[in-house]
Design a protein around this nucleic acid. Structure first.
Length: 546
RNA sequence: GACCCUAUCAUCUAGUGGUCAGGAUACAACCCUCUCAAGGUUGGUACACGGGUUCAAAUCCCGUUAGGGUCGCCA
């Protein structure tokens, strides 16, 4: 490649490779310290799998006393969305995942190896691309999209391996004169890597999670610099993960098949490749088949879904940790009070399977445990924060009646003991506690005919009878005796045992009577402890209901 | 089509040549109980299939089948 061509290809001054290396010295690490990164694209969409990946990488780095950083991979300008770094950074910090270096929510880089936004590193990639060009390890390609389409069709027709390789790599053998001619004609170009690989030969790649994988070498002359001068993922990966000192690249297994290429790139650039760990991506069951949790089809793929529903952040983290290491559960049972981030995640125990189905039942069960461990005040704050964002009118109600709501949330909440475990997500709270408020309208009593063996009239009568003797100062035993009185008065058994012994003597049991009162007060046959409800509910409201 | 990965209860998984194949979620029953939730006790459910190797296979090898992934100037 003549200097003339190189100048035409890279007309603007570029930093020299040695300057760059000086600016990005190798990290000083102690033995065992790992450097990992999370590298999302700023599409304005945070995938739940992105949190999963970030959590894994963050734990690996920080547990080793190393560095975890965030790099924004915005080399696809078409997909770039304004404000996306804010989505990324707030999503991560919301789950307690903090990058030591990276990009803040305003898009500004922090840390010694910046910029951490790829589009701002254009000159760096170009400097290395130019180096490869000078060394004859890269070449300009003038093939248009139509040429490549045609090529692929031919390959398909002849059932050949698709791709730009071998005799299909037309621009690889262009003479200097031909290149010059095209450049002078203003033909647009990309830079391709001149692959040293032979598809007939095989190589073994070592994967931290999958073990050794035997694969054919790559002989594809992949694009490393696109028409807009920005690098492709492959090239940016090699350059950045070298310069930024990544020791462990943990990424989804859609990248496994690119590893031979990536290793070639590291070798071509004279660098040591990082260690790789490829995890299986989260799956979803669709018509009996598993498939990738997809942005287009699955609302729960978007992390915002979990915010809208009000899943506690801790619950999601614990669920994901559980997917990463199934032994998290055992650890959690042995260490109920510890923070999930204290869990010693094991890299070697990340299961090497086909990809886990995202299981909401399991998430719910974990969430119940998480919420049960929170105090009423904490739940109140969490619900309020959620409501401010997603349910304004409910937020107003919560703020206006903080004490009342907190006492409601405190029903059967015994931290450390057997606490009520039925609340899963903040979204559910409004309807759960709706009957505590005067503006709630009780459903028609006739609707309970199938569940309760009494008429609407009699339900009302029982309510009135109970209210006549009700005293807020009663302890639970005295309260219950009064319920029993009402039961006996209306021909119901005062306890379940006597009912079971002689059902023919009664119209029903104490259960029915309690449920009548429950329905009168709450409009439902299932509720928390009725005594506790009555203790908390203002007496005039209770009187109205009964 | 080629290449790669994976295959244990419904789900997430433990398991690395000898285990009654373990746990969790879900499900069911019972106990407790004013309902529900919780808690307690118990239960059913799994090594994809076919060949090897071995005294012995969920575990090692081969094949089949199934699922997933990749083959872009997207990441």
């Amino acid at each position: 490649m003549t200097p003339e061509i190189i100048d035409l290809l890279f007309p603007n001054p570029l930093p020299s490779v040695s300057e760059i290396e000086a600016k990005y010295p190798a990290r000083q690490l102690e033995a065992g310290q790992k450097v990992t990164r999370v590298a999302p694209s700023p599409t304005g969409f945070m995938h739940v799998g992105g949190i999963y990946a970030a959590l894994m990488s963050e734990r690996v780095a920080h547990q080793s006393g190393g560095v975890f950083y965030l790099r924004v991979e915005d080399t696809d300008q078409k997909r770039k969305v304004e404000g996306a770094t804010e989505v990324i950074s707030t999503s991560l910090s919301r789950y307690g995942i903090f990058a030591d270096e990276g990009v803040d929510k305003d898009g500004n880089s922090y840390g010694p190896y910046g910029s951490y936004t790829q589009s701002e590193r254009k000159e760096i990639y170009q400097a290395y691309a130019k180096k490869l060009l000078e060394e004859g390890q890269a070449y300009p390609c003038f093939c248009a999209a139509e040429d490549l389409d045609l090529m692929r069709k031919i390959q398909e027709k002849q059932s050949m391996r698709p791709g730009y390789y071998g005799r299909f790599a037309k621009c690889r053998t262009l003479s200097d004169d031909e290149i010059l001619e095209k450049l002078k004609a203003g033909t647009s170009w990309v830079l391709r890597f001149k692959s040293p690989g032979n598809n007939e030969k095989r190589m073994v790649i070592k994967d931290l999670l999958k073990g050794d994988i035997n694969m054919p070498e790559s002989d594809l002359d992949v694009v490393i610099l696109k028409g807009d001068g920005l690098p492709t993922y492959h090239f940016a990966h090699a350059v950045d993960d070298h310069l930024m000192g990544t020791t462990h690249v943990i990424r989804g297994d859609e990248w496994v098949s690119s590893v031979p290429l990536h290793i070639q790139l590291f070798v071509a650039l004279g660098w040591k490749a990082p260690k790789y760990g490829h995890y299986a991506t989260l799956q979803k069951l669709d018509n009996g088949n598993k498939r990738k949790l997809s942005k287009r089809h699955d609302p729960e793929a978007n992390i915002v879904y979990f915010w809208e529903k009000g899943y506690p952040e801790k619950a999601l983290i614990e669920y994901l940790l559980n997917l990463i290491n199934a032994s998290f559960e055992d650890w959690r049972n042995k260490n109920p009070e510890k923070d999930a981030f204290e869990y010693p995640m094991s890299f070697s125990k990340i299961s090497n399977t086909a990809g886990a189905l995202f299981d909401f039942q399991k998430l719910h069960s974990i969430s119940k445990e998480v919420v049960a461990k929170m105090s009423a005040d904490e739940v109140y704050m969490a619900v309020l924060n959620w409501a401010k964002e997603y349910n304004k009118s409910f937020a107003d109600k919560l703020e206006a009646q903080k004490e009342y709501v907190t006492s409601i949330l405190n029903i059967e909440r015994n931290i450390g003991k057997k606490s009520r475990k039925d609340l899963i997500k903040w979204e559910d709270v409004e309807s759960d506690i709706s009957y505590f408020f005067a503006d709630w309208i009780r459903p028609d009593l006739n609707g309970y005919k199938d569940e309760l063996p009494v008429s609407e009239e009699e339900m009302k009568q029982m309510g009135a009878d109970f209210m006549a003797v009700y005293n807020k100062d009663d302890d639970k035993d005295s309260w219950f005796k009064k319920v029993q009185e009402v039961a006996l008065k209306h021909g119901f058994a005062a306890d379940t045992k006597s009912y079971k012994e002689a059902p023919q003597n009664y119209r029903g049991s104490i259960i029915d009577v309690a449920n009548v009162l429950r329905v009168l007060v709450t409009g439902r046959t299932k509720s928390p402890d009725l005594y506790a409800i009555m203790q908390i509910m203002p007496e005039d409201l209770l009187a109205t209901r009964l």
